[in-house]
Simulated scan of single mutants.
Amino acid sequence: MTGTRDPEATKARIFAAATAEFAAYGIAGARIDRIAREARANKQLIYAYFGNKSELFALVLEHRLIELAADIPVDAEDPGGWIDRLLDYHAAHPELARLMLWEGLEYGTSGIPREKEREAHYGRKVEAFAEAQRRGVIGSTIPARDLVFLLISLVVWPTAVPQMRRFLVGGADDDTERLRESVRTAARRLTSLPS
């Protein structure tokens, strides 16, 4: 007797396997055969559900960004707390930074699949910071777009290039905590109101 088909469970396994595959090998190096084997899914089913490999990568990345946004909503009124929660998230999910790096390496600055959706995703973060600046909750010395870029960079860079973190900061637990405090301090300074 065969088991009951569960398309949502199958899609979830495919997403998990694709996340690991793309994080490890990038878009060009990823193999649908390995994703299918790891997900215990038919290769043709992957194409039917998600289209080609580039489309699957874009959907995986978008799905991970949506998860991040749901787990750690932007909080422009408490940038330090938001930074702490993002640091924790990226420490627990280093694959997201790797996916972002692969996207940048393989697509550069143009031709990113689902680009309009991604711009809207980040636009919402920028608007939250712009609104906090307009209300005088945080400083407006740095334009909101640049501010969000700088804050995200501070958070993601240690996960994206762990070798640089180890070379420059060290790899012990107290080194990690010192870096975390430095990132928080930098975020406070970037968002502080003028004296």
Rank of each mutant, 00 (worst) to 15 (best):
98 R>M: 08
128 A>S: 13
168 L>N: 11
92 A>I: 04
16 A>I: 03
42 N>P: 01
56 L>P: 08
175 D>T: 05
58 A>F: 02
4 T>L: 12
126 V>A: 03
101 L>M: 15
50 F>C: 09
38 E>H: 08
172 A>H: 06
111 G>S: 00
195 S>K: 11
69 A>T: 12
123 G>K: 04
156 V>F: 02
41 A>Y: 10
106 E>A: 03
110 S>P: 03
194 P>E: 06
125 K>G: 05
147 L>V: 01
11 K>C: 09
152 I>Y: 14
59 L>M: 14
3 G>M: 11
151 L>V: 09
104 G>I: 01
191 T>R: 03
87 L>R: 07
136 G>C: 04
187 A>S: 08
142 I>T: 15
90 H>K: 02
164 M>D: 13
172 A>C: 00
181 E>V: 07
154 L>Y: 03
91 A>R: 14
22 F>K: 11
127 E>I: 08
188 R>L: 14
121 H>E: 08
143 P>T: 13
157 W>H: 12
119 E>Q: 14
91 A>Y: 09
138 I>F: 14
167 F>R: 13
112 I>N: 02
172 A>Y: 01
108 G>H: 01
35 I>K: 05
12 A>M: 07
168 L>I: 11
58 A>D: 07
111 G>E: 06
46 I>W: 01
128 A>V: 11
109 T>W: 10
105 L>K: 13
87 L>P: 00
146 D>F: 10
135 R>H: 11
190 L>F: 14
17 A>R: 03
158 P>V: 00
66 I>W: 08
96 L>H: 02
122 Y>A: 09
54 S>A: 14
69 A>R: 12
60 V>I: 07
188 R>Y: 05
195 S>G: 13
4 T>M: 11
195 S>Y: 06
39 A>W: 01
84 D>L: 12
36 A>W: 00
65 L>T: 04
140 S>A: 15
138 I>G: 06
158 P>G: 01
8 E>P: 04
18 A>T: 03
110 S>Y: 07
117 E>Y: 10
37 R>P: 03
36 A>E: 07
170 G>D: 01
115 E>K: 11
45 L>S: 12
185 T>R: 11
84 D>E: 15
134 R>P: 05
42 N>Q: 12
127 E>P: 04
159 T>M: 05
150 L>G: 10
2 T>R: 13
59 L>T: 13
57 F>P: 04
183 V>C: 03
143 P>C: 13
9 A>M: 06
176 T>L: 14
191 T>Y: 05
148 V>L: 07
38 E>D: 15
